[in-house]
């Protein structure tokens, strides 16, 4: 028998704390596969953020730093400047990256910091129990938008990829989704490109991954993926918003 699919060796052999069906696990696996395929396990340094993925360092068998809420891009900057040969990535959720850490992510992009950012957008605060996120959809109910997000008082969802695509310093900005195998495969290619860019010294790369939170959305994992497809995709179109070509 020939192996078709095996567990990546950059993942530690532990059970994650994520809820059943949580796409964080998928995203972790894609990042680990990328690290394996690029042969960079020994020189990769991850930066964990605050959110459900706060313990990401337990799941990747690489050096890690745990950053304060929203500050992962600044921490990654510090690491990368000291050890430019390390491959540095941050792994951040939407509360961390798009709310409290908006300044850090924008300015890391502005500086063209040669790092890779994996950004999980599931339109809700998972860790703290399902509050409204900056990416929560209009009308979406959360514990702090119990009547549905009302743009009159709560504004509109922030589109991180579109926003960062306007930043000249950003080399690669793309949005993918984790709701089915075909999209997962595309996301993998995007993540790989984002790491490859760093190896080649091309500068700031960010992949936004649309994800679910079945627990806080109150759905089965399968229904959550369906909800993502039906509700998030129209608001968050997929694609590469900046590819660095022609620069």
């Amino acid at each position: 028998m020939i192996p078709v699919y095996t567990r990546p060796k950059s993942l530690t052999n532990v059970v994650t704390h994520y809820c059943p069906g949580c796409p964080h696990g998928i995203a972790h696996r894609l990042v680990a596969e990328t690290i394996d395929e690029l042969g960079i396990q020994g020189k990769t340094v991850g930066v964990a953020s605050v959110g459900c993925s706060v313990f990401a360092y337990n799941y990747f068998d690489v050096d890690f730093q745990q950053a304060a809420h929203g500050r992962a891009p600044a921490v990654a900057t510090g690491i990368k400047r000291v050890t430019p040969d390390s491959i540095v990535f941050t792994y951040q959720g939407d509360g961390d990256l798009a709310s409290i850490g908006m300044a850090e992510i924008v300015h890391a992009a502005v500086r063209g910091e040669n790092i890779t950012v994996v950004f999980i957008n599931n339109a809700i605060y998972g860790m703290t129990g399902g509050q409204m996120a900056p990416t929560t959809l209009v009308g979406q109910k959360t514990t702090t938008s119990p009547f549905g997000r009302d743009p009159k008082t709560q504004g509109y969802p922030v589109k991180v990829s579109e926003l960062l695509a306007t930043v000249k310093g950003a080399h690669y900005v793309a949005r993918f989704s984790l709701h089915n195998p075909a999209n997962i495969q595309r996301a993998k290619q995007g993540i790989k490109k984002a790491f490859q860019n760093q190896i080649e010294g091309k500068g700031f790369s960010l992949v936004e991954l649309l994800s679910t939170c079945s627990t806080n959305w109150g759905m089965t994992p399968q229904n959550a993926l369906k909800w993502l497809e039906e509700n998030m995709l129209p608001e968050y179109p997929l694609g590469e918003f900046k590819t660095g070509e022609g620069e």
């Binding site: 500050r71 600044a74 510090g78 690491i79 400047r81 300015h107």
Partner: peptide, 18 residues
């Protein structure tokens, strides 16, 4: 950095990297 907040977090990363 873009702020004192960011600058000191760069210090955290850089110090952690040795």
């Amino acid at each position: 950095a873009e702020s004192e907040v960011s600058s000191i977090n760069m210090v955290y990363g850089a110090a952690g990297a040795g």
